[in-house]
Structure formats: C-alpha cells, structure tokens
Computed example of a mutant assay.
Amino acid sequence: MEERYALLLERLTKTEPEFQKAYRDSLDMSWIYHDSALEGSVYTAQELKAAMDPTAPIVTDSSIQPICEEIRRHREALEYIRDFADKKRQPLNIDVVKKIYLILHPEEGDIKTVKYRKDIPQHRLYFHEYAPPDKITYKVRQVLDWVNDPETRRTRSTIRIAARAHYDLLRVFPFASDSGKVARLFMNLLLLRGGYPPAIVHSTERQRYYEALKGSSATMTQIVHESIENNLGSVEKLLEGHESKGYAVKV
C-alpha cells in the first residue's frame, strides 16, 4: 500500500501545478466534509468553498461566518499534521495531541493552560464508555507511550498502530468537544508519517464507525484500512481520467 501511494504521489508531481492545486483543494474539502459529518455537522458546498477559496467574496452573512471559521481551523489542522508528518525526528508526545485540539479551539489558550474535560457529557454523539475525568491525563499518556514503544512498532503495521491509537484516544475522550476530530487527525498524522495516505472515514460509514468504538479495535482497523483503499482508488481514478485526456506530463 505504501508503494502504491508513493507511485501515485510521483504521478501527481508530474501533472501541471493547476491540477495539483485542484486535487489538494478537492481532497481537503472532502476530508473536512466527511470528518465533520461524522460529528453531525454537515457543511454545504457553498460553505466549504466560501471558507477555503481565497478568491471567494468575503462572507458577510453572520450565520455563515462561524461555520467558515470552523472550516478554516480544520484545514489549518490538516496542514499542521502534514507538516509534522514530514518532520520525522520530531517526537510524538502529548503536546502534539493538545496542539491539534488548540488549532481547532484557539480560544482554549495554549499548550500549558489547555484543560481536559472535567465531566462526562450528558448529551453526546458517542455512546461508548468514556474515561473518568481524573484518569484522562494518565490514559492519554498511556496511548502515547504505547505508540512510541519500539515493541509496538516492531510487531504492528502502521495502519494497526494508527487505528488503535485513534480508537484508544476516542475511548478516553480527552476534550469536552471535538475529541473525535482530534483522534482522527492524530491517526492520520501517524499514517502520513508512515508513508500512507490519510484514512478519511466516509460519512455513510457513520453508524458502523460508532458501533466499532463500542466494539473491538479490530473492527476499527478494518474501517481505517477500507478508508485508505477508497482514498487510493479515488486518486487513481482521478489521475487516469486526467492522463487519458492527453494533458502534458512533466518528465
């Protein structure tokens, strides 16, 4: 799968800059749309375009403005994990998880002051068991220690590690809001760092995804594996369509 992705990236670099930008914009829109839809927030194409297109007219509609800010912060988080994934020597620690959350919620302060949740949310989308607030610090550290353990990397594939880290983080549910987004962003950081494409869980898989969180991590690993396969298939189809039109390819 890594080789397949590496070949796709090589083919992408040989396309014209306009196509590469269109591909990246389309990927980010799809990523943000599906990831937010898993949380129950369904953005329209107009909202996504208004938030992500720098040439789009400035949004004056006060009802859309907060949504555009959410989308922009989400995209900023995507850029952060891509950038971090390229820095192979940077340590993966708790601050990385907090930083992802703070990009989504800059009003929460900084790395030193950001707080984990203090209670068990009563109205929620996720219905698996949550860690008690007094155990969150310990359990988040436990997840990071497991990810960084040489034995983990020696005995498990990148996909299994990323899927399990995401599963475990979501069962801790460290933040009062957007723990799901944080866990999936952290998972994709691990995948990107390992040479894989992102696993974008499709919104149509929402119920299955929630059920997996109440079940075993093996089911979650399967969902993540399928999401990566779907991503690769989409890029291959896109490139084949582009190349079949006879566009000039750089050599």
Score class of each variant (00 low, 15 high):
L38I: 14
E39M: 08
G40K: 15
G40T: 14
G40Q: 10
S41W: 14
S41T: 15
S41P: 00
S41V: 11
S41N: 10
V42Y: 05
T44Y: 11
A45T: 11
A45H: 11
Q46C: 06
E47P: 03
L48K: 06
L48C: 10
A50M: 15
A50S: 15
A51M: 11
M52G: 08
M52P: 05
D53W: 14
D53V: 05
P54T: 15
T55E: 15
A56D: 06
A56S: 13
P57T: 06
P57M: 03
I58Q: 13
V59C: 15
V59I: 15
T60H: 13
D61Y: 10
S62Y: 07
S63N: 05
S63H: 10
I64L: 11
I64A: 04
Q65A: 07
I67L: 11
I67T: 12
C68G: 00
E69I: 08
E69C: 00
E70W: 02
E70V: 04
E70C: 08
I71P: 02
R73Q: 06
H74I: 02
H74P: 01
H74L: 02
R75M: 09
E76G: 12
E76N: 05
E76K: 12
A77C: 06
E79T: 02
I81Y: 10
I81M: 04
I81E: 03
R82F: 07
D86L: 05
D86W: 01
K87Y: 08
K88D: 04
K88P: 02
K88C: 00
